[in-house]
Amino acid sequence: MNSEMSVLYLFLEASFVVKFIMLLLIAASIVSWTYIFQRGAALRKATNEVKEFEELFWSGADLNKLYADLTQKDDLSGCALIFCSGFKEYVRMRKTASSSPESINEGTYRAMRVAMSRQVDDLEQRLPFLATVGSISPYIGLLGTVWGIMTAFIALGQVRQATLQMVAPGIAEALIATAIGLFAAIPAVIAYNRFSSKVEKIENTYGNFMEEFSAILHRQSLASKSEVAEK
């Protein structure tokens, strides 16, 4: 491709509508890549936090001590935050004499469910934007292509003798819009699918921990009730 038919030359010579579409798609691609790096780092951090907490939790640490240690931190997230939310509610409800093991278990589970929902919402941030870019960018690029080709043929109709050299630049600049649309869409779709799968896996891990921790607290409630009845 010579200098007269370079991508930059075709962009500068494009019509206002096609040029605007190209700039829009380039901006969407830049924002998408920014979110891809941000979400990738956030999900890796969440995965590592889950592994670290599960190792700590299942190591046999005392729940009261574990809760006291975790509440000293300012940036709780993931399973640690779910654990603290559930254990805090468990301790609060146990202080109420009228609370049965079933009501304690229900209240604890509800508190953990709210905490988990907030964590999943945080993990899913920016994913809708990636899905939107991935789904509409090819169509926006196609719109630029159709507009550019239409403009080229309108200009071609105003001359007596049409040549390939006359119509080629207009068609080339129009096709660039489609190429940019695909360039923006493909990474966004791949990232969205990959991140959605990771979020689902982390959410399942949160849910499994909730079930297991809720069962542990329920057994403790029943044991405490039996001790009180024996006295």
Rank of each mutant, 00 (worst) to 15 (best):
M1F: 12
S3I: 05
S3R: 11
S3K: 10
S3D: 12
F11I: 15
E13K: 13
E13D: 14
S15V: 03
V17D: 01
V18D: 04
F20I: 15
I26R: 02
A27E: 01
A28L: 07
S29C: 09
S29R: 02
I30D: 01
I30Q: 01
W33K: 01
W33I: 12
Y35E: 00
I36A: 07
F37R: 03
A41R: 08
K45V: 08
T47W: 12
N48H: 11
E49R: 14
V50R: 10
V50M: 13
E52C: 09
E52M: 12
F53R: 09
W58H: 14
S59L: 06
A61D: 14
A61V: 15
D62E: 13
L63Q: 05
N64E: 10
K65N: 09
K65W: 02
Y67P: 02
A68Y: 04
D69E: 14
L70V: 03
Q72C: 05
Q72M: 06
K73I: 03
K73H: 09
D74T: 15
D75H: 14
D75V: 07
S77L: 01
G78H: 05
C79L: 15
A80M: 09
L81F: 10
F83V: 01
S85Y: 00
F87A: 07
K88C: 00
R92Y: 10
M93Q: 08
M93G: 02
R94S: 03
R94I: 00
T96P: 00
S100R: 04
P101S: 07
P101Q: 05
E102M: 12
S103G: 01
E106V: 01
T108D: 03
M112D: 02
M112C: 07
M116Y: 01
S117N: 07
V120Y: 01
P128F: 02
F129V: 04
F129W: 02
V133P: 08
Y139D: 08
Y139K: 09
G141L: 06
T145M: 10
I149T: 08
I149S: 05
M150N: 08
M150I: 13
T151D: 15
F153K: 04
A155C: 03
G157N: 12
G157C: 12
R160M: 12
M166G: 11
M166C: 03
V167W: 11
P169Y: 09
G170R: 05
G170Y: 07
I171F: 03
A172L: 09
A174V: 11
I176M: 11
A177Q: 10
A177D: 11
T178W: 06
F183N: 06
F183I: 14
A185E: 06
I186G: 07
I186A: 09
P187K: 08
A188C: 14
A188H: 07
A191E: 06
N193T: 09
N193V: 12
R194P: 00
F195N: 06
K198S: 12
K198F: 04
T205I: 13
G207R: 11
G207A: 14
G207Y: 11
F209H: 11
F209T: 13
F213V: 07
F213W: 07
S214G: 15
H218K: 12
S221Y: 05
S221E: 07
S224V: 00
S226C: 02
V228A: 13
K231Y: 04
K231F: 06
